[in-house]
Design a protein around this nucleic acid. Structure first.
Length: 623
DNA sequence: ATTAGGG
DNA sequence: CCCTAAT
């Protein structure tokens, strides 16, 4: 078939889908046609067919027949647009054509079409108008009634997108009145300068409209002209206007009867077998993304944003789309794969963060977004209401302002880095401050006792640490108050953890010795045991602590020791810092090597005992 | 709940 | 010490 001299191309009726024929009572023929950027119609290639085959199948399965007089469905694929044009329900027309458009159509071609619509039918205009006919003719199919339909007009497909569809109707297009009242969907010649309000009725697929058409639509919708040439913007605005909703995807949406259609296929399927306006689209169209969170979340939680396209496309990859279509499954599969790999918590957070921002960028209403972000911004997302007071604490001034009224000192905010030296959990100590918590007190006292009992005088007393100045005490009180409140309110250990930090307790030589001894006895790694058996009196030393300390000791062994051996002290020994006696380090080294080498080992209790004694003596001397 | 490691 | 992943 020759569409045009330059753009001529043969349209093969090539791909007929068998299932289509046998499937429905009224014979329908699908044809796949690739439309090149220049508007040329090219026979669909094998690949094209394959690519869209499943669509057709799905369609068949899911969408029995067309309710509307006619309509066009678009399916965007990587680089093709599949148009399904359906004809009258009454069967006057039984030919359906599938056309593949290269993506170009969305760009260059669009422009061309614009021109074309106004001028001679040269390219895409032919696409919908002539082509089908030609196609039919070529096919020699007797069923063809496309033209009849066109002329008949009642059944004219409402292919808004192609202004050109009107090409052939050009003649009548002019004469066609702008009929606002007419209920029948009409394509009408958008070519005319008269605002075509018909564009607003019935099913409208804005995606196919040219900029000019969109502008017309905009004009028709809002009663004013626009010079905006951003298709996305136009589409969105129009859709919003038509639907009176903000929940509009950037594209891929079809507006019908003043409602957005196609977001959820099932909604639009009628009992009589009406075909959903956009069935597959949601899964195929790049721009259109069904954002799960949005569906149940908040009905109107999207808003216009210029850069949403990127975001959406991004999301497209990872957001599972709830559809029955294979694509959906595919996506789902991808997601599954993703899940296979276990992301770290942090990773998840980041991801969700991004996602959220994207989503907010695209779908969330400003209002919601604020709230949303707020939640997300919280370092450790804890959307619990109880924690709100706490949550709001995060550092960002902005958030604080816009967020809840509860303002908590930044201090209380969990911090990544090391807290102030004196920053300790109120629970940890100073029960006197205000906590009536007896358990705490008891614990502390006990701890203290133990600590004191075992510890040397130099050790930090469990109660107020002498090291701390008054300043600190005061400061801390305030903080503690807050913390206490927060803690009470939240009553979640996790939070407490996040907020409070274990009081730093310097390891005493005694402890180190015990640790070494324990390692010697039970082996490195048996921290739990060591803690139980050797650190029963040091309740504040956890197995993790032991482990960490041991690690540090080893490190010291690898650095400090050699230097000392060499007799060269890398740096002056800070008097305030009691160096670990070389003897201990040596032993640590030995143990480390021993254990790392031999793997299993038998604890030389004697040895350890001896050493510990020796060390202790030394240690005492030092301390 | 522990253990191993990175921070 | 904290935080997490992996057991």
């Amino acid at each position: 078939m020759e569409v045009d001299g330059s753009n001529s191309a043969l349209v093969n009726k090539s791909e007929e889908n068998d299932f289509e024929k046998k499937g429905s009572s009224d014979p329908v023929v699908y044809q796949l046609v690739r439309v090149e950027g220049d508007g040329t119609l090219v026979p669909a290639t094998e690949d094209d067919v394959l690519e869209f085959e499943h669509f057709l199948q799905d369609e068949k399965v899911n969408f029995p027949s067309i309710e509307d007089v006619g309509h066009v469905e678009e399916f965007f694929s990587n680089d093709c647009i599949l148009l399904k044009k359906s004809d009258l329900e009454d069967g006057s027309s039984k030919v359906k054509t599938l056309e593949l458009h290269t993506q170009k159509m969305g760009t260059d071609l669009e422009e061309n079409r614009l021109d074309g619509s106004l001028g001679p039918p040269s390219n895409s205009g032919v696409l919908h108008g002539q082509q089908p006919d030609k196609f039919l003719a070529e096919q020699g199919d007797s069923n063809i009634a496309q033209q009849d339909n066109a002329s008949t007009e009642t059944a004219k497909p409402i292919v808004l997108n192609d202004s050109c569809s009107a090409e052939k109707d050009k003649a009548d297009a002019c004469s066609r009145p702008v009929d606002d009242t007419s209920t029948e969907p009409s394509v009408s010649g958008v070519t005319s300068y008269v605002p075509d309000f018909s564009i607003l009725r019935g099913e409208v697929c804005l995606d196919d409209l040219t900029i000019r058409e969109l502008q017309e639509a905009f004009r028709a919708t809002f009663g004013r002209q626009t010079t905006v040439k951003d298709k996305i913007w136009l589409k969105r605005r129009i859709t919003m206007g038509l639907t009176n909703s903000c929940d509009v995807p950037s594209s891929g949406c079809v507006v019908k009867d003043y409602k957005i259609v196609g977001k959820d296929v099932r909604q639009e399927v009628s009992n009589t077998g009406g075909i959903p306006k956009i069935g597959l689209q949601s899964t195929l169209v790049r721009d259109q993304v069904t954002y799960p969170g949005n569906e149940g979340d908040s009905p109107s939680s999207s808003y216009y944003q210029s850069e949403d396209q990127q975001g959406s496309s991004k999301r497209f990859k990872r957001v599972p789309i709830h559809n029955d279509e294979p694509q959906g499954n595919l996506l789902a599969g991808q997601c599954t794969n993703k899940r296979t790999r276990k992301p770290t918590k942090r990773y998840i957070e980041e991801l969700s963060d991004i996602e959220t921002h994207e989503s907010t960028g695209k779908l969330s209403s400003p209002a919601k977004r604020t709230a949303h972000d707020e939640v997300l911004l919280k370092p450790r997302a804890a959307p619990f209401h109880e924690l709100e007071s706490l949550s709001t604490i995060y550092p960002t001034r902005k958030d604080t302002l816009g967020g809840f009224s509860v303002h908590v000192p930044y201090v209380s905010r969990m911090r990544r880095g090391r807290p102030r030296k004196d920053f300790i959990s109120f629970v940890d100590k100073e029960p006197s401050v205000q906590c009536n918590v007896q358990t705490t007190v008891g614990m502390l006292s006990k701890e203290c006792e133990e600590g004191n009992h075992v510890r040397k005088a130099s050790e930090v007393p469990p109660t107020v640490n002498p090291e701390r100045g008054h300043l600190e005490a005061v400061d801390r009180k305030g903080v503690q108050n807050l913390q206490a409140n927060v803690y009470k309110a939240a009553s979640k250990p996790k939070i407490k953890r996040g907020l409070t930090r274990k009081h730093h307790r310097a390891w005493t030589l005694c402890e180190v010795v015990k640790l070494v001894d324990g390692v010697a006895r039970y082996g490195a790694g048996k921290w739990s045991e060591i803690r139980k058996l050797s650190f029963s009196s040091y309740s504040y030393r956890t197995s993790v602590d032991l482990k960490d300390k041991w690690r540090n000791l080893i490190r010291a062994t690898q650095t400090q020791l050699p230097a000392q051996k060499d007799g060269v002290c890398p740096r002056k020994i800070n008097p305030s810092i009691i160096p670990i006696p070389p003897s201990i380090l040596l032993r640590v080294k030995e143990l480390n090597e021993l254990q790392s080498q031999g793997g299993g080992f038998t604890a030389p209790v004697k040895f350890s005992g001896q050493n510990s004694k020796v060390v202790q003596g030394k240690g005492l001397g030092f301390l």
